[in-house]
Amino acid sequence: MGILENKFQDNVIVASMDKLLGWARSTSPWYFQFGLACCAIEMMASAASRHDLERIGMMPRSSPRQADVMIVAGTVTMKMALRVKKLYEQMADPKYVISMGSCATSGGPYWQHGYHVLKGVDLVVPVDVYVPGCPPRPEALIEGLLKLQEKIQTERPLTRKSV
């Protein structure tokens, strides 16, 4: 895909190719299981029998090199923040990040006296979708993932972006 990206002028063929690519990319994002704390249990529960994540195409992968989406589920501490950045850099493009739960969004209930808590994972990695809740229900996480799919569908990888 690298050779073809950002190459073509906007016309009707490229626009429909873009739509096809957007559909193909968004319907099977493989997620990187990065469960840190309590939200990880809800992420596991959404991958289990009752709310199945595989039916929307998400398969759990343990290695960042094989994943498209990183779901940061739980509190990120200062000790862990350096490793989050390293893992994000190991993922291959195109990559997306979902910040699950209020701890990953802004520090959560530990914002006030937490000397060791990173107040939001967007201080170290760029985030695409924020899912609020403490912890968010599996249905809320699935809605966040569907929003991410909509976002991926609106991308136009082949079109040359005008300067």
Binding site: M78, K79, A81, L82, Y115, H116, L118, K119, L123, V124
Partner: peptide
């Protein structure tokens, strides 16, 4: 529990947190 290069003793009553940790600002 804290990283090896952390400064200070956190649970003392007169603990003042450090400003920066490896470039991340601690507000």
């Amino acid at each position: 529990l804290c990283p090896d290069d952390w400064e200070g003793w956190p649970l003392r009553k007169d603990y003042e947190g450090q400003e920066l940790y490896h470039g991340i600002v601690i507000p």
